[in-house]
Simulated assay, not measured.
Amino acid sequence: MRKIVSYSFISADGVVEDPPVFVHDFDEVMREHLGTVIGTQDTVLLGRRGYDDWASHWPTANEEPFASFINGVRKVVVTSRPLGTPWAGAEVLGGDLQAPLAERLAPIRNAPGGDIGVHGSVTLAQSLLAEGLVDELRLVMTPYLAGAGRRLFDGVPAGALELEGSRSTPTGTVLLHYRLRH
């Protein structure tokens, strides 16, 4: 079964919403780390809001290595509505809309391929975490306090994380890699 890997920028006070508020210094170590994470992924899950925001930005963006990755990868959008803005490689998650997310994702998870990434879709990441569907967390914790905004673990049941690795960067960011114990 393919892994679902959630990658999030997170402030020191736990906020993941609106990263430009707390991500100020994207250094070379962070860039290399991102390249390593996305290098294992061939599919990305997006929520509807994330898709709508990103479909208007990334097709013409040049922030590498993410721009080339996200524009070329299969994008599966968890939504009940048709996609309004076209974007190469984007599709709506099929299946019975009343079925649990795990059931709807099963054909993708059970198909051959690389890791399945979740990037920038807070509500979707929270839903996947709450349902025990995330296998790994890749957190990029910046040395800034956002003060307000949605937090990744709001509404997520208590559970244990197993630290797979950590590394600090020259700008004080900490790269955290956790495996979730299910």
Score class of each variant (00 low, 15 high):
residue 76 V to S: 06
residue 134 V to A: 10
residue 125 A to N: 11
residue 44 V to W: 06
residue 11 S to C: 13
residue 133 L to R: 00
residue 113 G to I: 08
residue 98 Q to I: 00
residue 27 D to I: 04
residue 17 E to N: 09
residue 76 V to P: 01
residue 80 S to Y: 00
residue 29 V to G: 09
residue 32 E to F: 08
residue 132 G to Q: 03
residue 77 V to R: 02
residue 127 S to R: 13
residue 3 K to G: 09
residue 115 D to F: 12
residue 62 N to H: 14
residue 123 T to N: 03
residue 113 G to Q: 11
residue 93 L to N: 07
residue 172 G to L: 11
residue 151 R to M: 06
residue 98 Q to V: 00
residue 24 H to R: 15
residue 153 F to V: 05
residue 133 L to C: 02
residue 30 M to F: 05
residue 145 L to I: 15
residue 42 D to V: 14
residue 130 A to S: 12
residue 32 E to Y: 06
residue 105 L to D: 01
residue 24 H to P: 06
residue 68 S to Y: 05
residue 12 A to Y: 11
residue 59 P to G: 09
residue 174 V to Y: 00
residue 157 P to S: 00
residue 14 G to F: 10
residue 128 L to S: 00
residue 24 H to C: 07
residue 48 R to I: 05
residue 79 T to M: 03
residue 8 S to H: 15
residue 35 G to P: 13
residue 4 I to D: 12
residue 34 L to K: 02
residue 50 G to M: 14
residue 105 L to M: 02
residue 26 F to C: 02
residue 146 A to D: 03
residue 3 K to M: 07
residue 174 V to M: 15
residue 29 V to S: 14
residue 37 V to G: 12
residue 74 R to V: 02
residue 77 V to A: 04
residue 102 A to M: 12
residue 137 L to E: 01
residue 74 R to C: 08
residue 69 F to K: 04
residue 42 D to W: 11
residue 117 G to I: 07
residue 71 N to Q: 13
residue 177 H to S: 12
residue 128 L to T: 00
residue 83 L to G: 09
residue 131 E to T: 05
residue 146 A to F: 09
residue 63 E to P: 01
residue 127 S to W: 03
residue 120 G to V: 12
residue 158 A to C: 02
residue 48 R to F: 07
residue 83 L to R: 03
residue 105 L to A: 03
residue 139 L to C: 09
residue 95 G to N: 08
residue 27 D to P: 08
residue 106 A to F: 03
residue 126 Q to T: 00
residue 19 P to T: 05
residue 176 L to Q: 10
residue 88 A to I: 04
residue 128 L to Q: 01
residue 44 V to C: 15
residue 37 V to K: 07
residue 77 V to F: 03
residue 2 R to T: 05
residue 14 G to M: 12
residue 84 G to D: 14
residue 87 W to G: 03
residue 154 D to C: 05
residue 85 T to Q: 13
residue 116 I to N: 09
residue 40 T to M: 11
residue 24 H to K: 15
residue 176 L to K: 06
residue 21 V to I: 13
residue 151 R to G: 04
residue 58 W to D: 00
residue 67 A to H: 10
residue 90 A to W: 07
residue 76 V to K: 04
residue 136 E to S: 04
residue 89 G to L: 05
residue 48 R to N: 12
residue 116 I to H: 08
residue 89 G to I: 02
residue 19 P to C: 09
residue 46 L to M: 15
residue 119 H to T: 08
residue 22 F to R: 13
residue 129 L to R: 01
residue 94 G to H: 06
residue 85 T to C: 06
residue 146 A to R: 10
residue 105 L to T: 01
residue 31 R to L: 12
residue 148 A to K: 14
residue 100 P to V: 04
residue 57 H to E: 05
residue 22 F to S: 08
residue 132 G to C: 08
residue 105 L to H: 00
residue 18 D to Q: 15
residue 83 L to A: 11
residue 28 E to Q: 15
residue 169 T to W: 07
residue 36 T to H: 10
residue 166 S to Q: 06
residue 160 A to K: 13
